[in-house]
Design a protein around this nucleic acid. Structure first.
Lengths: 191, 191
DNA sequence: GTCTATACACCGATAGAC
DNA sequence: GTCTATCGGTGTATAGAC
């Protein structure tokens, strides 16, 4: 029956600043550095304020991820409705900052049940939307992708960028130019 | 000048058991759980023994990764020399346990300089070996992969499995069947 | 080679004053 | 809404006995 602690509204400026700070820490230092003290410092507030706006650290990280997925799904909805859906999805996912953050959340899912479930929901949903858009586009254009089914294309579109971003941050670029060229070639066949 | 602490040999049974334990903890619980206490417990020894065999926790994790890359490069050398190099590389990388561990090390690289450098070296080297083998195979067989250059194929071979493994552990399987079929199709064209 | 004991930093989280 | 103070737990790492 706990839940007696006083708590602030989820839409305040400070709450939002904490979520922004959490994103930066996760992206640049990894989830191992995402402590209440480090995130509060990054946001420029006292550590204890974290627990005024969020019940637990796990709650903060989950809220951070959910804010991201809500934005990503809104953006994806626009992308698949555009007249070059495959290109639009690819360019949205091409943001290197987002890719590194996405990687960190995937890693976090290993020990955070809530985030694991959210990731499963989000990936399944977004991949279906992308696959449907590609299938529709191919049908309209009369394009045959051969062994590359819409579902396979959607998988590649959503995973390749995450690796490109993480590897680039690690100092690896082997094969990156070629894989980008290959994706561009495929996008031009689809759209 | 430090380095005054007494330390054990790097090839003992206990040292090896600690590295095995570290692999299991990393794979199943993530790098956030890879503490000296947790790893010692997993290996069935006292926490302080970790510091008899390894100078720091970072050293242990680096040794763990280096043991893995040494084995992986040896295996890769066999694979690329076989008469179906592409298939051999793919099946080696298809081990889901290895894939999940590889993902964890990629995440660790965000905050561990030594591992980041080792990953950069290993990925660059292994990807070149794979690309060379694919290029050679295509030349011998007279196969034209079109927009899929050997470097692009090597990138996909080394990254797709890592995501398949991590996603499956997260409860996501959307597009997995299709991407496996696509890879198989491509492998049969190459070898 | 392994044990006990222990120092010190940082972690998540709470209580209550202002 | 933000502050100070603080608790118990866990983390890395070391010293010295057996």
């Amino acid at each position: 029956m706990a839940a007696v602690r006083r708590m602030g509204p989820p839409d305040s400026a400070t709450s939002s600043a904490l979520l922004d700070a959490a994103e930066r820490v996760l992206r640049n230092e990894g989830y191992g550095a995402a402590s209440s003290r480090r995130i509060a410092e990054e946001a420029g507030v006292k550590q204890q304020l974290v627990y005024y706006y969020f019940r637990t650290m796990d709650d903060l990280l989950l809220a951070c991820f959910q804010r991201r997925t809500a934005r990503a799904l809104a953006r994806l909805t626009e992308d698949v409705a555009s007249n070059q859906p495959a290109h639009a999805v690819w360019w949205t996912l091409s943001d290197s900052q987002d890719a590194r953050l996405a990687f960190e959340f995937m890693a976090l899912a290993n020990r955070h049940d809530g985030i694991r479930e959210e990731i499963a929901r989000f990936l399944t949903e977004s991949r279906r939307m992308t696959a449907d858009a590609i299938a529709r586009q191919c049908k309209e254009q009369g394009t045959d992708l051969g062994p590359v089914t819409p579902a396979a294309a959607a998988f590649l579109l959503s995973t390749v960028n995450v690796f490109l971003g993480r590897e680039a941050a690690t100092g690896v670029t082997e094969g990156h130019k070629d894989i980008r060229a290959l994706i561009e070639w495929a996008l031009n066949r689809i759209d």
